[in-house]
Design a protein around this nucleic acid. Structure first.
Lengths: 350, 350
DNA sequence: CTGAAAGCGCTAACAT
DNA sequence: ATGTTAGCGCTTTCAG
């Protein structure tokens, strides 16, 4: 991509003034001779000058008008995850009020493309890392930049500002709700626990080895109240989905309900999975199964029956991220989620 | 945001080599004395050097590792529109394969924040403008940058590469489908036609004054086949929604069905509106009304009954955008949409 | 394999 | 109101 060879100097020469004056025409038009105020844009247009070069201005002024965002895996995948989109929305909302741009970095290499290079070359004021697996190499590359960092959802390194939602507490609320309703056989469908594209049952070993803290926390938040209520592990079967999609949720539920028809309720780690799962339950004549989602995406309230779920305040999350990034307010924050009881939970039928 | 005062030179001085050599350590590690290869990173770490400054490198090398994206209105709003998200997903997918970042610019000023400034300061290789209203001032600011531009969906200025989906054709397919089914009283719910936050009936005058070409094209694509079939304007009432949300669709349908209970079918300019509208129709006991959406978002196929809609190939759209931006392939393209008949359309009940 | 020279295009003090 | 001076931090020929 080549740019014009016309620079401030070109305009200055043509006008017989100094470069500084032309620069002022762009940056401080108020303190400029009225005559020049017209002439500068005119000659600029005539000569094909497209305004001060953004990169040069950045170098000189040191200002950075954007913040970098790095998500897990393919960037395009982040857009398919409603919860991720909700987060981006919240973050973008905070940024745009400050006039900042959001630089979304490729989250995954391809061919000769390397993520660390993209990280190294990002002209940004700081980085927000969303849901990176623990021990990610990309995290190291970001840390190497020496810019402000905020980690969202995961991982919690201890070394950097962390902002997240108390996942364990949210899961606990969901599990306790079902328990109070009288359920004793409660399945669960969880989003990836580790970056290995695994779909299938979650054993105790797999839970222990989980590298995604969010999933780990939710699994525990579900499990502990059930254990406390004396429910044996066999009555709390859990399935992992590598993808957060409607299809994945549906497949997990088909499997769960086929292998354990006695289940009366299912917990999900996202509304997306829950919605797909509900659909599958209905299709196999098990509309009676109680369902609790997680996130409270807009569809949750609108579909029929509306989904009981755990609400996460993404707008607040986004705001906090930016504050942490810019204000240097490096206190880590855990936002408390909330149970929203709607139409998909009821006492067990039997 | 201040950076370190440590530069390449600092490392060079400490090591007793030239700046160039240190630069090579970062950019061409292969052609470097093995001894130095270890020492440079070591002293860098020791001195707190965080690697070559991104802005300076950009200025010097002229490379731009990101592309700018500008959407209408608040950036955070774009994330609430499933069709916009689908587009971003497609575009991001194309970008990340090239290792490029996506710089999302604030789409709306706030306080002293000005969108044109953000546009002027973006360090990018080109701009993609998504669904801007005709005559947008921001478009001028982008044009002033003199970088490659691609316009998506709207506006079609003629002066720049345009990539979009043939909206009129898509709408036509939807209308003809209903006609073939035997419907003769067909309402429509359309997303904004003009940037004035209007919610209400669309008169012929309002249609004529529409500044959003996409809406204009869809309105025409619906209207013309109906006219050709001899259906009078009274039997094709249309409502405009300022927002593309489930709620807006629901409100529009309540209004439409209250004022014209004789309608047997409703066309929508998005699946989001259609889903909200279907819900409203059902709530007021009019589940019999046939519904056609637009976009084919993932939910469309998964909800029950699955939505009849017009499919747009967003991945293809995103790919074409990038090609146009980088390859300089400035031929405008119109992708042809496709009717997907599913469960929400049937012959009129009466 | 390493260094010296020569800017990339601009802005910020500080004069005038 | 405009000019002068002095780089921002880096990469890139081109020599050695």
């Amino acid at each position: 991509v080549s740019r014009n060879r016309v620079t401030l100097q070109t305009i200055a020469d043509r006008l017989g003034v100094s470069r500084t004056t032309v620069s002022n025409a762009y940056n401080r038009p108020d303190q400029l001779a009225p005559e020049l105020r017209e002439k500068v844009p005119a000659t600029a247009a005539e000569l094909g000058y497209t305004g001060p070069d953004a990169a040069a201005r950045r170098l000189r002024s040191g200002s950075r008008e954007a913040v970098g965002l790095l998500s897990t895996g393919w960037l395009s995948y982040a857009f398919t995850d409603p919860a991720a989109v909700l987060f981006m929305q919240g973050f973008a909302g905070a940024l745009e009020r400050e006039g900042l741009g959001l630089l979304m970095l490729p989250g995954r290499g391809y061919g000769s493309v390397r993520v660390p290079d993209a990280i190294r070359d990002a002209v940004v004021a700081g980085f927000c890392l969303h849901s990176l697996p623990a021990g990610s190499e990309d995290l190291d590359a970001v840390v190497a930049r020496g810019l402000p960092i905020v980690l969202v959802d995961e991982p919690r390194t201890g070394a950097h500002t962390f902002i997240g939602i108390d996942d364990e507490q949210g899961a606990r609320l969901a599990a306790e709700h079902l328990l109070e309703l009288g359920h004793r056989r409660i399945g669960a469908v969880c989003f990836r626990t580790t970056d290995d594209d695994y779909d299938g049952p979650i054993t105790a070993e797999r839970e222990a080895g989980a590298t995604y803290p969010v999933s780990r926390a939710r699994l525990r938040g579900w499990r502990e109240p059930l254990e406390a209520a004396g429910i044996p592990p066999e009555d709390h079967p859990r399935i992992e989905c590598a993808w957060n999609s409607l299809d994945a949720g549906a497949a997990a539920v088909r499997r769960l309900l086929t292998e354990r028809p006695q289940l009366t309720a299912i917990l999900f780690s996202s509304d997306q999975l829950a919605l797909g799962g509900r659909r599958a339950a209905r299709d196999i004549g098990r509309a009676d199964v109680s369902i609790v989602g997680y996130d409270d995406i807009p569809e949750a309230a609108h579909l029929w029956p509306p989904l009981t779920t755990i609400r996460q305040d993404f707008a607040e999350l986004g705001r906090r991220c930016l504050t942490a990034l810019l204000g240097g307010d490096d206190e880590s924050v855990s936002i408390v989620p909330e149970l929203v009881v709607r139409g998909t939970t009821a006492p067990p039928r039997a």
